[in-house]
């Protein structure tokens, strides 16, 4: 589904990603871990198509399409979803209206008619249950005055509504208490199926107790320096990142 080859990316002249290789197949959950500043969030942003980053070399192919050729909104229409680490506030625009606009843009791209009000409302009700989100929250201005937990739940709600094929969760666990973490993780797990894939970007192993990855990749200094199964996350939790850094510097 997703194939990243030798990806190099920089921001303001500073190279952050220095040759990333990654293969993601349908039905898989990949965790990207690593110390602060290793390039995790940069990878998420580059995949989503953020303009601030410049890709100097490498390829990203997504379901046969060259992702780097597509604008951010075109990538979203193709099924790439980024759950933001810091969701953005848009005053005066309710989550409901935001989702209605987004969903109909995606449907238009797929050659489908816009969803009528009744079907849209029905769909919302169903997806709201997944992340235990309150209707009242969805009628408020997007992310404005939301608590940290509400913002993250709202991200997962949007993910549920848009039904992406590739979801990238950027530090979704940051700022969540244990209950909120469980709710968010439950939502993600329920959305998982054989046709979609998830990339979980996280600093801590905690989230991976709930969203169990098939692969764990350790990103250090702009490269994936180690790949393993879910047990690698536990090892990192127990031993920290220092041994990885040492291994990487030896190699």
């Amino acid at each position: 589904m997703l194939s990243i080859k030798n990806l190099h990316a920089s921001i303001e002249g500073k190279e952050i990603l220095k040759g990333i290789n990654l293969e993601v197949k349908p039905g898989e959950v990949h965790a990207i871990m690593g110390p602060n500043g290793s390039g995790k969030s940069t990878l998420a942003s580059v995949l989503a198509g953020r303009e601030d980053y410049e890709v100097s070399s490498g390829e990203i192919s997504f379901n046969g399409k060259d992702l780097l050729e597509l604008e951010a909104d075109e990538r979203a229409k193709e099924g790439v979803f980024l759950a933001f680490q810091y969701p953005i506030e848009i005053p005066g625009v309710t989550t409901t209206n935001f989702m209605k606009t987004a969903l109909n843009k995606i449907r238009e791209h797929k050659g489908l008619e816009p969803l009528d009000a009744v079907s849209f409302l029905g769909m919302m009700k169903e997806k709201m249950k997944l992340v235990e989100i309150d209707q009242a929250l969805l009628s408020r201005s997007l992310n404005e005055g939301f608590s940290g937990g509400e913002k993250k739940r709202n991200e997962i709600f949007q993910m549920a509504m848009l039904e992406p094929t590739l979801s990238i969760l950027d530090e979704t666990d940051s700022g969540l208490d244990i209950d909120a973490l469980r709710i968010v993780a439950n939502g993600v797990n329920k959305l998982k199926n054989d046709d979609n894939a998830t990339i979980v970007v996280t600093h801590y192993q905690r989230l991976l107790d709930y969203i169990v990855p098939d692969f764990v990749h350790v990103l250090f200094n702009g490269k994936i320096v180690k790949t393993g199964g879910k047990e690698l996350a536990h090892e990192l939790e127990a031993k920290g990142y220092d041994w990885i850094k040492e291994e990487a510097s030896i190699a």
Binding site: R50, M99, H109, L162
Partner: peptide, 10 residues
């Protein structure tokens, strides 16, 4: 960018 990431063009 947030809007674009949800499929809404610029």
């Amino acid at each position: 960018f947030y809007c674009q990431q949800r499929g809404i063009d610029e």
